[in-house]
Write a protein that binds this DNA or RNA. Structure first.
Lengths: 291, 291
DNA sequence: ATTTGGACTTTCAAAAATGAAAGACAAACC
DNA sequence: GGTTTGTCTTTCATTTTTGAAAGTCCAAAT
């Protein structure tokens, strides 16, 4: 910061909590045990608090810290804050595990949801040491990680902004699927929803062979299962539907890489880091792409 | 810190206050105006709060931040904390000006007290931009700045610990004072209290000429004014008493430097910095040592 | 009187946070 | 449609904070 002394008008509220911990604990050692904050840090925080308030709150000595009369007066006032902080902690404890919002296309989201139990469980022995809960959001739109619309995105290309971190997880291939090779014609989404490369490709290359549309990817697959037409799917998704068979070779023009993307900063956040590891394991699994 | 991800179990309480400021202000700009915290910092603090709680508290956009339903629920709970913080601020406001504890020998303390109005005043035009109030503690004992027994000490030699910062303010000379040159014999403090170099010097060099003792420096000077004996004083203190005259030349053995001493860290604290400047000005004033 | 243990403060390298300046982007205005 | 304004995010140099290790000092134990 600029070389100007900044007059601190109010102490940090957390310093009041540490102050109570030191008072309750009779010194820095007791407070360290209660709060997990190391003694050198507590020593400096108590000194900073006294300096900011302009009061001597403790007598310091070989047997620890004892409150002065100013300190006792302040401790009585800080009880309100302690009660309010505990109230908040109780409210937050209703949801002990942070949500990690993950967005991907429909089929990827479905795959993750169905296989998530392989890398995540309520069972203590399987749960990563960092608690977190997935919030899966199926979306083909490019969600805005800068504006925190999602914590993790699964995308079809390497992120190019420098503040995004990416990990390549797989190569995704596409093909046609149907009840049998005798089925002709294609089902797809309405033009206004057909924003993915695979939908665009179909409309561009075989516009006259589109015989029907469906309202969403799930319905699209159901209609193909009903025998009405063919559908273009990622091969890992088509193979997951026993009623459908692959009826064309891979469509080379649609093959792309898959990238697991997050904000550069967020990678260091334990829940997000744990989620990245778990999802990365799932997406890279050999079983995803065949026996 | 060690290279281990630290799972944050609770957000900073100050972040809750900033969260309310952003919510109230409709965005970062409004909150910046209300709190003085710059927008980039607020942006990161809100992101950190959401991450720690595992909830999305705001929708972000070109028109600012708006609360999500999770955000509104949290805001309702944080009101308790706001009330408690305001209660504390009101309590602290009863003493808006921090005390700066200054220790010095008796005569130096007296000099500062009598002349303090020259560098400090309630009048706004004279008050330094940093509010503070002196707490003068007269003590010949070496107070423990490490243990915060004082913020500033006025000592008779350069500080030798590296964590102490010092500024030389003056050269202090001593001499004998009495009602007149015809007065013989010396008054001093009892042996148990005679801890200063000048008292030790007297007991060492003229033990047979001590005719009386007094309970404290003030009484010592009063008895000299009463004509009972001579007293050894710093010359600036003796000259401040019109009833006494200097009856010896300077006592070279007692001359020493005067140092204004504080903790290295504390120098950057605005109240202490202002106090150091004010006291330094007083102690260095030419008028302290003569017309 | 000496040694040991306990508790606080200081050192200093590393990590984290900050804020001015710049970049990005959408809404409002002309 | 082009320009301007407002608000948020990113960059990056600087400042602040942290915590393990070491130092200091006093009370308790021997």
């Amino acid at each position: 910061m600029k070389d100007k002394p900044k007059l601190k008008t109010a102490p940090k509220l957390d310093d009041y909590m540490l102050f109570l911990a030191v008072a309750d604990g009779g010194g820095l050692v007791g407070a360290e045990q209660a709060t997990g904050t190391p003694s050198p840090t507590l020593s400096r925080r108590m000194t900073a608090l006294e300096r900011t308030l302009g009061k001597r709150l403790f007598e310091r000595g070989a047997r620890g810290y004892t409150l002065t009369s100013d300190g006792r007066a302040l401790a009585a006032e800080v009880e309100h804050l302690r009660a309010a902080a505990q109230h908040l902690a109780a409210f937050n404890a209703k949801q002990t595990r942070p949500l990690v919002r993950i967005t991907a296309g429909h089929w990827t989201t479905q795959y993750i949801a169905r296989h998530f139990g392989e890398v995540w469980s309520q069972d203590a022995s399987l749960v990563p040491s960092v608690p977190w809960v997935p919030e899966l959001v199926s979306s083909d739109a490019m969600v805005d990680i800068a504006r925190r619309e999602a914590d993790i995105g699964i995308r079809n290309r390497r992120p190019d902004q420098t503040w995004l971190a990416g990990r390549r997880t797989a190569r995704i291939a596409y093909a046609e699927f149907a009840r049998g090779p005798e089925v002709t014609g294609y089902i797809t989404l309405p033009e206004s929803l057909a924003t993915t490369p695979s939908k665009r490709w179909l409309r561009h290359n075989k516009p006259d062979e589109i015989v029907s549309t469906a309202s969403d990817p799930r319905a699209e697959a159901d209609l193909a299962i009903g025998g009405i037409a063919r559908v273009i799917l990622p091969i890992f998704a088509g193979r997951a539907m026993p009623e459908l068979v692959q009826v064309s070779p891979e469509i080379d023009a649609l093959t792309h890489e898959e990238w697991l993307v997050s904000h550069h900063d967020a990678r260091h956040d334990p829940p997000i880091r744990a989620a990245l590891d778990a999802i990365g394991t799932l997406l890279s699994a050999p079983t995803r792409f065949g026996p």
